[in-house]
């Protein structure tokens, strides 16, 4: 991942705090944040909303072949977490023993380093989840 500085910077509130969106018209929550509510479109009224930090593992995989920037982490877990409000989030699962990683297990958000932009580039931080 090259020149990721703007990418890392601009979504930092969302990535640090699991900040998403809520449509006041239809009541739907979204993560990541959206500009337009897909259900209401022009009639939608989007406002920022904190997502619940806990949910259940909906699906997971252990990645053995990593993309650029994640080579030193393999193997690592990727999961989709279904949050308490029904919103699904794709995330890394960390600090969780293998035997506890199951569909339906409860997982909680934690704050972690996500990747580094080479040896001298900036470090991207953001949310990951761990089984509780």
């Amino acid at each position: 991942m090259k020149n990721a500085t703007p990418l890392i910077w601009r979504n930092s509130a969302d990535r640090y705090n699991l900040l998403g969106s809520h449509c006041a018209t239809c009541g739907t929550d979204y993560f990541p944040e959206r500009v337009v509510c897909p259900k209401c479109r022009r009639k939608g009224k989007i406002e920022p909303k904190q997502m619940p930090p806990e949910g259940k593992i909906y699906s997971f995989t252990q990645v053995h072949a990593a993309p650029t920037g994640f080579e030193h982490e393999t193997p690592y877990y990727i999961a989709i977490i279904e949050l308490a409000n029904g919103v699904k989030v794709l995330t890394q699962l960390v600090d969780s023993p293998d035997e506890k990683i199951k569909i339906g297990a409860t997982a909680r958000m934690c704050f972690r380093r996500v990747f580094e932009e080479g040896d001298e580039g900036i470090i991207a931080y953001g949310f990951k989840f761990k089984v509780v």
Binding site: N11, T61, A66, G69, L90, T91, Q92, F115, G126
Partner: peptide
Amino acid sequence: EEAATALGGAGDQEWELFNGATFPALYAL
């Protein structure tokens, strides 16, 4: 690795690839 990263762009760069999800990982889910 570079090919995998390029193909990762077929998914959501900002919210999938950013978090370390490869293409095989998405289909594995």
